[in-house]
């Protein structure tokens, strides 16, 4: 739900302000790659209606955001292209290599799924770099990143809960480790987010 909220906040910002200032297209494209490689089982592995609907929402909304940033006349003009310089392959290639080395089963679907877990852990980095370069971070962008980070942090609690409460719950070290790293990457952002919130000041990250 926090993940869904983050997407709603981002779409709200882009749609109402007709601006994507401070939003990293690189991160959005990495997320698109994350969802495509993770949800390849969309039609073959039915978990629940909730699960299927959320997968479709995550996939379509991410491509919708990319379309807005690349294709919408007004939104496209507000994109900080010169500042959003992080290179995709710098994250994609190491994650691919790691997925080929550390996985639970050497099949195409499993390796791609593992790749998506690793890539998700670091997909926020271009956004954080852009944020550091952005002087005026608007509330919606700040809250968007907060929700995106909080969702994985909440997963950590959920994993602990499931580990102790569910009888047939399997340990999933790859997901746990990647989730911990993903949350740790946000630690700095969370710190400044709460600090600005407490002081009732506009969010800004030190250079």
């Amino acid at each position: 739900m926090t993940h869904l909220a983050s997407i709603c906040l981002l779409l709200l910002k882009i749609h109402t302000m007709k601006s994507c200032a401070g939003v990293s297209l690189k991160t959005q494209e990495l997320y698109a790659l994350v969802f495509v490689t993770r949800y390849l089982d969309l039609f073959s592995n039915f978990v629940s209606m909730y699960n299927t609907i959320m997968k479709i929402i995550f996939l379509s909304s991410t491509f919708g955001i990319i379309w807005y940033m690349r294709g919408h006349k007004l939104v496209r003009q507000s994109y900080d292209k010169e500042q959003d310089t992080f290179r995709h392959y710098f994250l994609v290639i190491p994650c691919m290599v790691l997925a080929l080395v550390i996985h639970s089963k050497f099949t195409l679907l499993e390796v791609l799924w593992t790749f998506s877990i690793y890539l998700e852990a670091v997909a926020i980095l271009p956004q954080l770099v852009l944020l550091q370069r952005t002087r005026n971070i608007d509330n919606l962008t700040g809250n968007y990143i907060f929700c995106l980070g909080a969702y994985r942090a909440l997963y950590l609690l959920n994993w602990i809960y499931r580990y102790f409460m569910e009888k047939n719950y399997h340990a999933q070290w790859i997901t746990w480790m990647a989730g911990m790293i993903q949350t740790a990457i946000y630690a700095d952002f969370f710190y400044y987010y709460f600090k600005s919130w407490k002081k009732n000041e506009r969010l800004k990250l030190p250079a």
């Binding site: 959320m54 799924w113 399997h170």
Partner: peptide, 10 residues
């Protein structure tokens, strides 16, 4: 070998 992880999460 590691256990095949459950794919019930998003």
């Amino acid at each position: 070998t590691m256990q095949d992880p459950p794919k019930d999460e998003l």
